[in-house]
Design a protein around this nucleic acid. Sequence first.
DNA 1: CCTGTCACG
DNA 2: GACGTACGTGACAGGG
Length: 945
Amino acid sequence: MGNNRLGSNTMSTSNFGKGCHLHLIDGSAFIFRAYHALPPLTRKSDGLPIGAVAGFCNMLFKQVEDNKGPDAPTHVAVIFDHSGKSFRNDLYDLYKANRPPAPEDLVPQFPLTREATRAFNIACKEIEGFEADDIIATLACQAREAGGRVTIISSDKDLMQLVGNGVEMLDAMKNKRIDSDGVREKFGVGPERVVDVQALAGDSVDNVPGAPGIGIKTAALLINEFGSLEDLLDRAEEIKQPKRRQTLVENRAQIEMSKTLVQLDCEMELGFGLDELEIRDPDPEVLLGFLSSMEFRTLTKRFADQLGLEAPTIPETTPQAAAALETPEAPRFDTAEYTTVRDAEGLQSWIDLIREHGYVAVDTETTGLDEMVADLVGISLCVLPGQACYIPLTHKAGSSDDLFGSDALAEGQMDLETALAMLKPVLEDSAILKIGQNMKYDAKIFVRNGIEVAPIDDTMLLSYALNGGLHGHGMDTLSERYLDHQPIPIKSLLGTGKSAITFDRVPIDDATPYAAEDADITLRLWSQFKPQLHQKQVTTVYETLERPLVPVLAQMERHGIKVDRDTLSRMSNAFSQKMAGLEAEIHELAGESFNVGSPKQLGEILFDKMSLPGGKKGKTGAYATGADILEDLATEHVLPARVLDWRQLSKLKSTYTDALQDHINPETGRVHTSYLQTGANTGRMASSDPNLQNIPVRSEEGRRIREAFVADEGNVLLSLDYSQIELRILAHVADIDALKQAFADGHDIHAMTASEIFDVPLAEMTSDIRRKAKAINFGVIYGISGFGLARNLRIPRGEAQGFIDRYFERFPGIRQYMDDTVAFAKEHGYVQTLFGRKIHTPEIAAKGPRASFAKRAAINAPIQGTAADVIRRAMVRMPEAIAHLPARMLLQVHDELLFEVPESHVEETIETARRIMEGAADPAVHMTVPLVVEAGRGANWAEAH
DNA sequence: CCTGTCACG
DNA sequence: GACGTACGTGACAGGG
């Protein structure tokens, strides 16, 4: 961020100069004006909101029309804000924090306005990390220095500082030109002092603080009296009015910071010159094509008339859109329609088809489920429902009942390299959307084959954003539910169990119907889901929390984490020995030999043979022997205590020290987990194969397993975790002043809670009272119940209920929040996170215990889900933020991110990652409680955590 | 394949 | 008044 800000603008041999006239259009202003000026129009064929795009095109059209006179521009550009933060957020993290997020139905229109600009053949510019204003400022300065004229088409007062010496502004709405006198009228000072006035007056819209109590009028008065802001601040003591004097002296730093916020950057390194902005005539075909694809009938006709061309007819529903939509007329599934692509000519015709449509559903077939190991076997494509193909690439010859198989390739397949070389430009083309079901898998396969697939859409993630909580998001579920079609089971091709074969052994003729069908299903699901995003108001969730996370996770997974096999192996041996000893002792105590690992046999020993109290049988008729029950027995008897010890070791050995070794990739020497983005209903992710989100930490013995997770040579592991994030979110959403204050002051939140409910002064706090309060705090997040708290604290139920009652007495706002949340869930059938993620709660209407279950889940979901959204936002921004560092993000554990970085860059990485994590809610949500991130480092995960 | 158990946040 | 109960996950072992 902010790099190259001081770069000089050595303008190489430019043709721009005297007599030239540059028009700079503030694109964002155009968009918002168009959005608010027009009713919410939608594209007829598919319901895509396009009101703002229509207005935007009208305004561009008018610009072109009106500028044919003697004052016509020679150069023109539309400048956009790049989404995300600008360098100003580094100066002041609340900059523009007051801005509400863009309306849902406007979001999908942003990229379309860029497309529109290009269709008009007007230069379309945006630069990451900078606001449109800075680009406009730099261009205006360059043009002025070159001796040309500039018209800035915007009414943004922030741009008025640029006016003068040939630079003017034009308010397109009022059709009013603003020159130096116009600026003086507005600000009371000339353009060169506008920033001084703004620095003093501040701006509530952009959240520029300024000097409290001083508006534009007063600011102008002061600046005119003292000449400049600097002189004013230096001589502030001379101000006559005591109040004003005090304000200026006290807020000097804030005023100076405000000036840097409003001061536009005229010295940006743009990466393009003024010559690029020279006016060009639009290509009629491109422009008419765009306008008609938007289904703008009037605009299309007007433009065609002007050129004396025939306007393309726009059917009530374009064939393309009709085909893309899952309409009742969509063809039924018919595997006979699928084709097998066996040569370059066949593939080329599909590539042509893809380029014609601009999107394609893609699916890969591989030899296994581990994308770090599996090899590509074939690729299927689909562009229209019912029309799909399969490209077999590495199927093996020989029938599947050939015991030894054959390593020779089957006949009638394209050469792998040739096919990939042909597909690569399409799969990497930024203008062609690649649609997949669980695209992360396919993208990882493609990366290993030298192809970086982008941009992508993912039907699994679309379903998750749209239908989270309602059902699973696997292809089979979605196909049955939304297409009323049962896909061909993979088992029918591969078989099951020991005799299962890999996909490369499937005969090509059997593979085509299966593989092509998957692409067909994916395309049909996409056609159905995509338009629903804005209808259900989850475009932002999908576009900011789901889609951009895919490449981030893929990178983390591919990188993996180094795990030391010897450490694990030694631990396994130690556990074996200890377990053998315990087992012997347990058999001795029982008076017979039995399987300690069998709850059934253990129950019979404990409750039948030894007749210990508390034997309760569960649904299956077996005695329950859970840890809680054994712990109760352990106070009186040795055997259950030994079983508990044995179980802990057994768990650690089988699940961790043994199993993890099997997950070390022989090629990389590292462990590569797989994250399932749709793993939890709340927005959390799940990790599997292996699960690296449940590596032991609570017990001393278990925590040592983390010593096997090590940094690569010369590197260290960094762990950054959000402190108390869920309680902070609760304090924010339930708006509890006492909790918010405690977090703002950095107090111990559990001790504070304990002090409030148990009336114990903080100075006299004991660890036991604090422990109880901590349990209550967690209980609150989970939708507290007397029974649950009682069980957790091992206290009588009545006592637990008393704690809860007192808690709600002290924090009535929490109860209010819970009641409101449940009521919302009942009314709408879902609850929401602060970032708009919807979590459906279909069980809320049920009767009996299921309803209470759903209630607690509904209370928990917005809190857990908001925390999940926060860390997702941090993860999405992280790769770019640490791109200049040799650091890698390795793992996510719900509220923790683990990094690997050379020792030389530890401090810088901590600083950067912490800034991203702590600011992750901004600017979409302004948290009234600070998010705090704690950092640790070490040679292994145990030390870092 | 289901259940119980237990590891994590 | 009875019902059951803290929220969210994944892996492993035993036992049908």
